[in-house]
Amino acid sequence: MSHTAHIPSHRKPRRSASKLALRAGVAGGVLSTIAVAGATGPAHAAEPVTETIEMPTLTTGLASTAAASAEATQQVAADLQLKAQQNAAASSAAKVAKKAKADADAKAEAEKKAKAEAKAKADAAERASRSSARTTLSASTGGSSSSTTTSSSSATGSAATIVNFALAQVGKAYVSGATGSSAYDCSGLVQAAYRQVGIDLPRVSQDQSATGRQVSLSNLQAGDILYWGGSGSAYHVAIYVGGGKFVGAQNSSTGVVERSMDWDRPSGAVRVL
């Protein structure tokens, strides 16, 4: 008899099968079920063991983050669009303002030019009117012959020399730009008269009217220079010879004449001597 005949067997029943199932789903949460079932053999059946594990919900957090990101992107796009519109509006306003300024400057320049032209025409018309009046008066008084007088002057010294020279030129021709001895223009006659006493005056009326010192028409002395127009911008000059009279080269119609100051009141006078 074997020594092991009555020793009971200690082997465990062999499992005939083993199953493992894992189920997981993600949709509003993740539910996983792990089932483990084991069978020990035909004689000893084991009860299945089931364990449930609940996973955390992820989709809600992801959806919120995506929505916030989309909203932020839309806000940035809206801000950029608004900034672009503001820049375009500012650029357009700047262009309009620049054009308006250019138009205003052009208009002001045109008005300034028109005023200058109008003043020049008015000055020319005034000179023409004076010339016409002098011609008419000369004709009504018998021309230059009636104005040739033998005025005596109380002037002495250099003033007498200037006055006598001017009176000696009465009746000679007026020629624009002439400085003697057979013809003069107004400033040419004054320059020639003062040259007799060694004084070299400027050539034109404008400069002669600003030479020396200004004197009142009520305080004239023989030899003073009379001018018509403004000081420094005179258009005619003559020599005061005393007795309320002057000698001047008036125009091509009258030539050099002696006239009363009441015939054509001068604007002012300067004294050189």
Rank of each mutant, 00 (worst) to 15 (best):
residue 1 M to Y: 09
residue 8 P to L: 14
residue 9 S to L: 13
residue 10 H to T: 14
residue 14 R to E: 08
residue 17 A to D: 15
residue 19 K to S: 09
residue 19 K to I: 05
residue 22 L to W: 11
residue 23 R to C: 07
residue 24 A to N: 08
residue 25 G to M: 13
residue 25 G to Y: 12
residue 30 V to K: 11
residue 31 L to C: 02
residue 34 I to Y: 01
residue 35 A to D: 13
residue 37 A to F: 06
residue 39 A to T: 04
residue 40 T to S: 10
residue 42 P to C: 05
residue 46 A to W: 07
residue 66 A to Q: 01
residue 73 T to W: 05
residue 76 V to P: 00
residue 77 A to Y: 08
residue 79 D to E: 14
residue 83 K to E: 14
residue 90 A to H: 02
residue 91 S to R: 12
residue 97 A to I: 07
residue 97 A to D: 05
residue 101 K to T: 08
residue 101 K to L: 12
residue 106 A to H: 03
residue 109 E to S: 14
residue 110 A to S: 05
residue 111 E to P: 03
residue 113 K to A: 15
residue 121 K to H: 07
residue 121 K to T: 13
residue 124 A to V: 04
residue 124 A to H: 03
residue 125 A to V: 03
residue 131 S to F: 09
residue 135 T to M: 13
residue 135 T to C: 12
residue 142 G to E: 09
residue 144 S to Y: 12
residue 147 S to L: 13
residue 152 S to K: 10
residue 153 S to V: 10
residue 154 S to Y: 08
residue 154 S to N: 12
residue 156 T to W: 10
residue 158 S to A: 10
residue 163 V to K: 02
residue 166 A to K: 00
residue 166 A to N: 01
residue 170 V to P: 02
residue 171 G to P: 00
residue 173 A to G: 01
residue 175 V to R: 03
residue 175 V to M: 06
residue 177 G to M: 06
residue 180 G to V: 10
residue 183 A to Q: 01
residue 190 V to L: 02
residue 191 Q to T: 01
residue 193 A to F: 13
residue 194 Y to S: 09
residue 197 V to N: 10
residue 199 I to Y: 12
residue 203 R to K: 06
residue 203 R to Q: 00
residue 204 V to S: 02
residue 205 S to P: 04
residue 205 S to I: 09
residue 207 D to Q: 15
residue 209 S to N: 00
residue 211 T to F: 04
residue 212 G to N: 00
residue 212 G to S: 00
residue 215 V to Q: 04
residue 215 V to K: 05
residue 218 S to C: 07
residue 220 L to Y: 00
residue 221 Q to K: 15
residue 227 Y to V: 02
residue 228 W to Y: 14
residue 229 G to S: 09
residue 230 G to C: 07
residue 231 S to I: 08
residue 231 S to A: 09
residue 233 S to V: 12
residue 241 V to A: 04
residue 247 V to W: 08
residue 248 G to Q: 14
residue 251 N to Y: 09
residue 252 S to G: 07
residue 262 D to N: 12
residue 268 G to C: 05
residue 269 A to T: 05
residue 270 V to H: 06
residue 270 V to F: 05
residue 271 R to S: 02
residue 272 V to F: 08
residue 272 V to I: 14
